[in-house]
Each structure stands twice: as structure tokens, then as C-alpha cells.
Design a protein around this nucleic acid. Structure first.
Lengths: 236, 236
DNA sequence: CGCGCCAAAATGGTATACCATTTTGGTTGG
DNA sequence: CCAACCAAAATGGTATACCATTTTGGCGCG
């Protein structure tokens, strides 16, 4: 079990929630469980810390990063900054096979929705958007996008999906983006990507407000949830 | 010499060019030169790799990342995606003391320019922009901004500064941004930030074109230099 | 002379052992 | 009974030694 494998397993465990948010990660124990020594485990943790998935306190311990609703909104507002440009670049410089692949993922996602398998929807949705960002050919934009850790949002929303009419809307948005990419309409595709993510943010805010007002009222998440959204009135 | 210090020294050495781009980093040698063992050195290198400053090839070696002109343009187009939103957020949620601090940095930069000390201009300019992004309160936006490694561009432009009328323009742009932040004009500040960076990109492209057409003509940097710029026709 | 193969050197990867610091729990004095 | 302090356990940090893989250089065979 080399260091790369340990890193992947840890990352996956954080994504799927088997390493819960806030959990203390003891090096000796983890290394034993993964069958490696402390050195490769530490190197994995350092990499994860650089990516923002864990937080290390010197001579104390490292913990799985705990995401508040405001953090989820931060992640999505970062997408709002990155993905429109990525979509523009993908439209201008992406390979001709891109629209076909994107359509296949859209259909796959629609299938899973109709089968009620909402468990993997997040991941398919991520693959769709990730493919666009990759197709942009912008290495640093891709890096920033991947280090946003969009997939970590899934476990935070187990209580969501209350009104699952959204999959239809998502499917529609995705197809619109694909069509504009295929048509070479960079402006339109960029704007469609922006609108799509902005819509997701509105959806998330609704869920969080709904969830926090029914819970304890004085939590800090209340007003600040709207803070970092940075939703401009309109895009272009 | 703990690991944190080794990390900082390595990072600084890459920024200021004493570790040159493309240079091979041998672990035993570096660890001896820094007075630490290989373990903390390796952990520093891993962190630097996660940040994109070095590239590691398993069982071979790690190298200082080498930036082509197209990479510099990538960095700046990433700024184009991030800083306008950051400026908007800083305008909306930044502390009232922000404009004062920004003005001080602007004046400092103007001083250095008039003294001909163009060596440190990049760093002061970075402090100015970095302060805005920090003031946005958006942790992930700040992280993405810092991992763009803007300061690494400096050593790549030693041959630039051919027409140093730009400092005046930069000063003017900065003051315009500060005034709009102070006035609470989020839209205006966002757009001013966008225009400022877009102007820098045009400036860089001019330098690179000028430099590459005088050198070997068939290099891959030629056309692709305009690729990842993603300069929209206009911003909002 | 050159091509390929093998051995040795160089170099990154990992396990172990030990050090430094923090945390914890109990003991003692007030 | 409480507080302060000290010792011991837990845990992260680092040095050393060794293993795995790659690279290199030279030797021999064609």
C-alpha cells in the first residue's frame, strides 16, 4: 500500500463521509488501519491539508475539515467565479467530441434520477461539470476547481432533496449549456453556466434557511449565509 | 530548523529565483543545505507540489516548475476570474479601514517607482491586490488566489519593463478601485478590478509577442498565447 | 565500432526508533 | 473540597537506516 493509495483512500473516505467532519485523525491508528507506516500517512495528510480537506494543529492532531452551510455557499460561489470562464474556454477550444460526451452524462444522470437513485446524482453532476472545466485546457483553472472540493457537499445535504423537481431543471440547464457549446456560442454558454450555478445557490440558500430556522435560531449561520454568494444582479 | 521554516525558505527561494525554474531538487543535498533531515524536507516538497510550485516524478526527482509565457497568461486569466468577485465582496463586507490601508500601499508603490526601485514593485502590487482578496472574507477565494502564485511571475519578466510608463497607469487604476470601494459601489469596483487586470494581460501579451517574434518563430507559445486569456469583450 | 546487457551508484520511498510537546489524571498541600 | 503541580501517557515531529526503483557507466559480444 504505497502513499498514493493511502492518499486516495483517505480522500475518498472524507468525500463519502466514512471519515466524519470534525473527526480526530490519529496518525498511528490510521496508519495501522491502512497498513502503512506513519511516514506515507503523514505525507498523505499533508497533501490533504494543502488541499483544505483536513486541518492540522501542531503537536495536537489533525481533524477532518468541518463544513458549515456558509462553507457550502463559499464553494458554490467559487464555482460561480470559475465555471463561466471555463465554459467559455471549452466552447472556444474544446475538442469536437465534447458535446457528445456531455450529452451522454446528461442522459445517464436523467436515468439515475428516474430510478430514484439520487445517491450518485451528485457524482454524475460533478463529472459533467468537471469535464467542461477540463476541456477548457486551463490547467490552473482546473486545479482551482478541483480544490474547491465540490463532492464534499453531498454528505452535508442528506436532509435535502425535499423537493426533487430540481433534477428536471438541472437536466434542462445542462442540455442548454451543451447546445450552446456545440453551437460555438461562447457568450451564451458562459452565461448559461453562470445562470445554472446561480440557480443552485438559490436552491441551497433556500434549503439552509429552511433548515436553520426550524433548528436553533441564534446560530451564526443565519444572516451570513447570504454573504459570500456574490450573486451579481446579472452576469454579462 | 523545523519543517515550517524549510518550507518557507524553499518557497521564497523559488519566488526570488535562487532556485531556478526547471532545476532538479535532490532531497539529500537540499536537506543537508537546509540543515534538516529528509523527512521534513520531503514534507515541504509535497506541500509545494500540492501548491503547484514543484513537480515530482516518482523515483526520479522533483523539479522547480518551469513557467512558459502561456503559464503566466494562465495565472493572470485566473486572476481575471477571481479578483473581480473578491473586489465586490470586499466592497460589500470589508472593514472601513480597508480603503485607508490600500491608499497607503498605493502611495508606497508610487514612491518606489519614482525612486526607480522597480525591483520590489511586484511585491507591493501583490500586497495591494492580496489585501483586497483577504478583505473579501471568502476563505476559498483567498486560497485559490494565493495558489495562483502571482509573485512567481516577477523573475520571468526581467527583460520586460521596457516602457515604464505603466506605473502611472497602475497607480491610477488602483486609486480608482479604492475610491469605488470606499464609495460602496460594488458594481463599479468589480468592473474596475476586471479592467485593471485585463489591461495587465494586454500588456503581458504585448511583451511576450515582442519577445517571441524576435526569437525562434515556430515555438508553440505563438498562437496559444492568446488562448487562455479569456478576455470577454466587456465585463458587465 | 556500436549495441546491449549487467552491475553499481544515485536517488526516491518506507519502516523503525527516538525526541519534543502536549494532554491527562492523580496526588498533595492549602 | 478545590486548586496547583508533577509525572506519565498520548501524540505529533524528526533523524537514521534500509528497501525499491531508476539511472548510469563500462564491459563484452557481435
Amino acid at each position: 500500500m504505497p502513499t498514493a493509495a493511502a492518499y486516495r483512500r483517505l480522500k475518498q473516505s472524507i468525500y463519502d463521509g466514512s471519515l466524519r467532519a470534525g473527526q480526530k485523525l490519529v496518525e498511528r491508528e490510521l496508519s495501522r488501519r491502512l497498513g502503512v507506516s506513519r511516514i506515507p500517512l503523514r505525507e498523505s495528510l499533508i497533501r490533504l491539508e494543502a488541499e483544505g480537506l483536513v486541518r492540522s494543529i501542531p503537536y495536537s492532531s489533525t481533524f477532518v475539515e468541518d463544513l458549515e452551510p456558509v462553507d457550502v455557499l463559499e464553494i458554490y460561489s467559487l464555482r460561480l467565479a470559475l465555471e463561466p470562464m471555463a465554459t467559455r474556454l471549452a466552447t472556444m477550444y474544446g475538442r469536437p467530441s465534447l458535446p457528445g460526451r456531455l450529452r451522454r452524462w446528461s442522459h445517464k444522470m436523467a436515468e439515475l434520477c428516474h430510478q430514484g437513485k439520487s445517491r450518485n446524482i451528485d457524482q454524475i453532476d460533478y463529472v459533467f461539470h468537471h469535464a467542461i472545466v477540463r476541456a477548457s485546457g486551463h490547467k490552473r483553472l482546473l486545479r482551482a476547481y478541483e480544490s474547491a472540493h465540490i463532492l464534499i457537499v453531498g454528505p452535508k445535504l442528506k436532509y435535502a432533496h425535499l423537493e426533487d423537481n430540481s433534477p428536471g431543471q438541472i437536466e434542462e440547464d445542462h442540455l442548454k449549456i451543451v447546445n450552446l457549446i456545440e453551437a460555438g456560442d461562447a457568450d451564451g454558454a458562459e452565461r448559461a453556466a453562470y445562470d445554472h450555478i446561480a440557480q443552485s445557490i438559490i436552491y441551497l440558500e433556500k434549503i439552509f434557511d429552511q433548515h436553520t430556522e426550524s433548528a436553533s435560531s441564534g446560530r451564526r449561520g443565519g444572516r451570513s449565509s447570504a454573504k459570500n454568494t456574490a450573486t451579481k444582479k446579472e452576469h454579462p
